[in-house]
Write a protein that binds this DNA or RNA. Structure first.
Lengths: 334, 334
DNA sequence: CTGAAAGCGCTTACAG
DNA sequence: CTGAAAGCGCTTACAG
């Protein structure tokens, strides 16, 4: 146990101590490689003594495999635990995560650059990535999986949650429940997820001949949902129902209704969200929403990425998961 | 723009195209290096044409600097946005994050091994790290900063939030508010943070001659706080006040009080937490708690780590931040 | 089964 | 200012 050296121990050090060649040491750490039992024992003894661990960086250089995947998440991402889930999935597959948090202001191109320089084996991009970045990665031939990228052209691997059927069911049930006037709290304008959800909701509302419709904008967080609700209230009572582009804003809207406007939910106003965030299940809210099957989506993303890394010629694929309607008490439904 | 090649572009490719030596190319990407203006122009042209980016892995090997820091977070960590904050801090300092999520069951030693193999420049460990790991990193001489590691022996850099004064103030105010019987919802037994907070609370309670004291165990999440509250209720009414080892459990306890036991908070029972989680400020809860200055703590951690990387001989240091009492309406305070 | 040797893509003295 | 050369710590044919 004399690993306290100023320079890290290399395979040469081990070789010298074990009285073998450096290649023999290397073979001990290469799964299929052949090395005699007694030799291996000698080497492993030296490895123990010296506290040797192969240098993954050096290995990457020669194998052209870094065993690292980049994960890009947006700050205000719908699910903070998505990152944790991805981390676990990839760890189980022997891959490490190089994490990039995309601030909105930050020059996105810079991130591409960094990722590329580290020669990651692949990339998972969760939410809100400018098209420019998508193209950049495609050009670099970095195996990539997008989560909830809603473009129709499948130029990359994608795992999605179906934003349409859930949203339509929500609207349908609200109307059956008696709602005739609606408010919609949108998410950020540059969020495809928000845009799509709102489009789907509005399409269904129009299809059912609903015309009393007001809009307000939020930023996917609780606070902005709260403010947006008040905006919807401006000059009059609440609409029968408020549809929010995600759960966090819906919870903010519920808090605004109850605490800022002394309204009862769902008696005075129905409120629904989208995501299936853990907080939506807290009994103070018991939100009507659509749960995205995050775990399954993450597993699918990891599987696809791994398959793509192993065989880069694989065709692109889009895996679509359906959301699950979660009934709660935050809305009067029919 | 002919970067569509099966092999990545290297500095040799650029050199050939620009008609210069490979070392000249390298110098263009080394901050202080001297290269003639016209040469640089030629090279940069070739760089553009080929879409060349230096290989950070190869660079790491020679410079002995990976520009990566490992971040270990526990799954149930007190603050999911801690990771995001760290990511931003390090990005601003030109460092990349290799993320390790420590599942509880997972063999922690395996993580040490992985981290070591990647020859990261440093390590930030946020919450709950077994002593074995601490020692392993110390031995490897990996510059390390712990967040909220509460050991008194300073054998590593640490940034902490003072768990004592906040907890004592909380207890003191509850007693002044009239509370005489107390319940305490503990966090995981292996969490130093939980243990310390509970110790401090209990010490203050005893100092003030409070003897009616019940305990229940939770796991830092909402659901377990909710269950723990019901346990405290077993066989009788609620205590005057319930002290929770963190905010999430406190929110769960509030929900249990109101929704599972039809109690009014704070009329029937006062509830307090610790952390300053965003949700604690939601008007449904308006929790009395102690806010940890996360941003400042993360910045301090990043600063310390960087200083340590630049000069490994630096002495260990512990930076202690004080928590800020956040008054809310979830408790009757004096 | 084992060792000598080449090479992954860079950086960095060292001469010129 | 520039290029030839060594070397970072590995893996992997290739002989023996």
């Amino acid at each position: 146990m004399e690993s306290d050296r100023s320079k890290a121990v290399t395979s040469y050090d081990v070789a010298k101590r074990a009285g073998v060649s450096q290649s023999a040491v290397s073979r001990c750490f290469t799964p299929g490689a052949s090395v005699a039992k007694t030799t291996r024992a000698k080497i492993m003894k030296a490895v123990e003594d010296l506290g040797y661990r192969p240098n993954a960086i050096a290995r990457s250089l020669i194998t052209q495999r870094s065993n690292m995947v980049a994960v890009i998440v947006a700050n205000m991402g719908f699910n903070p635990e998505l990152t944790a889930q991805l981390s676990r999935s990839f760890a189980a597959r022997g891959l490490h995560i190089l994490l990039f948090t995309l601030d909105h202001e930050v020059e996105a191109d810079d991130v591409v650059d960094q990722i590329w320089q580290y020669r990651v084996d692949g990339l998972v991009a969760a939410v809100r990535l400018p098209r420019r970045l998508v193209d950049a990665f495609a050009k670099r031939r970095v195996p990539t999986v997008f989560v909830n990228r809603l473009d129709d052209d499948v130029r990359a691997n994608t795992v999605c949650c179906d934003q349409a059927s859930g949203e339509r069911m929500l609207v349908d049930k609200l109307i059956r429940g008696g709602a005739r006037t609606f408010g919609v709290i949108r998410g950020p304008l540059d969020s495809a997820v928000s845009v799509r959800r709102v489009e789907n909701a509005v399409a269904e509302l129009r299809a059912q001949s609903i015309t009393d419709l007001r809009f307000a904008d939020g930023a996917f967080d609780h606070e902005s949902g709260r403010r947006a609700f008040s905006l919807l209230m401006d000059g009059g009572g609440p609409p029968d129902a408020v549809i929010c582009a995600n759960d966090m804003m819906a919870l903010g809207a519920m808090d605004a209704a109850r605490h800022d406007h002394a309204l009862s939910v769902p008696k005075d106003v129905s409120i629904v969200g989208f995501d299936g965030a853990p907080q939506s299940r807290w009994p103070s809210y018991d939100l009507v929403t659509v749960r995205q099957p995050t775990r399954e989506m993450v597993e699918a993303a990891a599987d696809m990425l791994l398959a793509r890394i192993d065989d880069p010629t694989l065709a692109n694929e889009k895996r679509l998961f359906s959301g699950e309607l979660v009934l709660g008490t935050s809305a009067r439904l029919g």
